[in-house]
Amino acid sequence: MLYFKNSDQRLAYEQRHPIFGEHTGPLQKQLLTEGEFSMFAFAPMIEGNFVEVNKRMKLVDQLGDPSVITVALATINIASPKPDTMLLAMQDNIPSEGKDEQLLKLKRLYPLKLVKLRVENETNCILRVAVAKRGVFYIELLTEGADDERFGRWVKLINLLNRSPDVIKEETDEQDMRPKKTSKIKRFMKKILKINRSS
C-alpha cells in the first residue's frame, strides 16, 4: 500500500476528491509530531468535535459537562477513493506555564471496514456509528449555528462510504461506546494495516 508522503500528493488527491477540503485539523497537526502515526501526516482527513447522545438525542454524560470526542475519517491509502480509517480522540487538560492547554489524546483507531456510519438525524447533526463486535453509539456534531456547513461534508462522505456493500455485521445491542484510555494503540495500527493490505 502506498501512503501520502508529502503535501503535494495530498493536494493532488484533494483536487480529485474535493469532499475532504484542504483544512488540517488539530488532531492531524498533533499526529505530525508522533512518529508511529507518520502515515497520517499528509493523509486527507476530515475532523469534527462531537458529544455522545442516546437514541432519543439526550446527552449520555449525566455527571456534568459532556466529554467532547474528536472524530476523524482519513484516507491513508493513496489509491483509495474514499476514507479507510476512523480515529477517535479526547481532550486532556495539560498545565502549561500556568494555563490549561487543550491537547488531544488518540484513544481508538478502527479500519472503516469494521464500521458502519449512518446519518441518524440530519437536522440535529447526529450520526449513528456501529462498530463490529463493539456495538452502536450516537454522536452529535458541535456546530456554530444554523449556517454551519460542516455537517454537510460528513453527510457527503458517509454517502460515499455507503455506496459499497456492507462489510460488517452490525451489533443489535446498543451500549456506551465513549472512548477510554488504552495503551494498545500500536495493536490497532497493526490491525488497520493488515486489513488494508488484504483489500
Rank of each mutant, 00 (worst) to 15 (best):
Q30L: 08
M39N: 12
G21W: 01
L31V: 12
K133S: 04
K181R: 12
S96D: 11
L103F: 12
E140N: 07
L63G: 07
T143C: 04
D8Q: 10
R197V: 13
S198Q: 14
V53A: 02
S80Q: 09
V129S: 04
E170K: 11
I78M: 08
I168P: 01
L27S: 09
V115Q: 07
R187T: 14
L109T: 09
R150E: 03
P165T: 01
P26Y: 00
A130L: 07
E34F: 15
R16Y: 06
E174I: 00
R118P: 11
E122A: 10
I126C: 01
D147V: 08
P26I: 00
T75K: 09
E97Y: 13
L59Y: 12
R134M: 01
M86P: 05
K55Y: 06
K190V: 05
N54W: 04
T70M: 08
V71K: 07
M57D: 01
A41P: 02
K58I: 14
Q28P: 02
I69D: 03
E171P: 02
V115T: 07
S80D: 13
N49K: 05
K29Q: 15
D8T: 08
R178Q: 13
I126Y: 01
I139N: 01
G135N: 10
L103N: 15
I46D: 08
K169D: 01
V51C: 11
R118G: 14
K156F: 03
E52C: 08
T75E: 09
N77G: 07
G25I: 04
N6Y: 08
T33F: 14
F188G: 03
R108S: 09
T143Q: 03
G135Q: 07
I126M: 00
I158Y: 07
C125R: 07
F40S: 09
K107M: 05
E144D: 10
S7Y: 13
D166C: 12
K133Q: 06
K194F: 12
M39G: 09
V71P: 02
S164F: 09
K169V: 02
L11K: 15
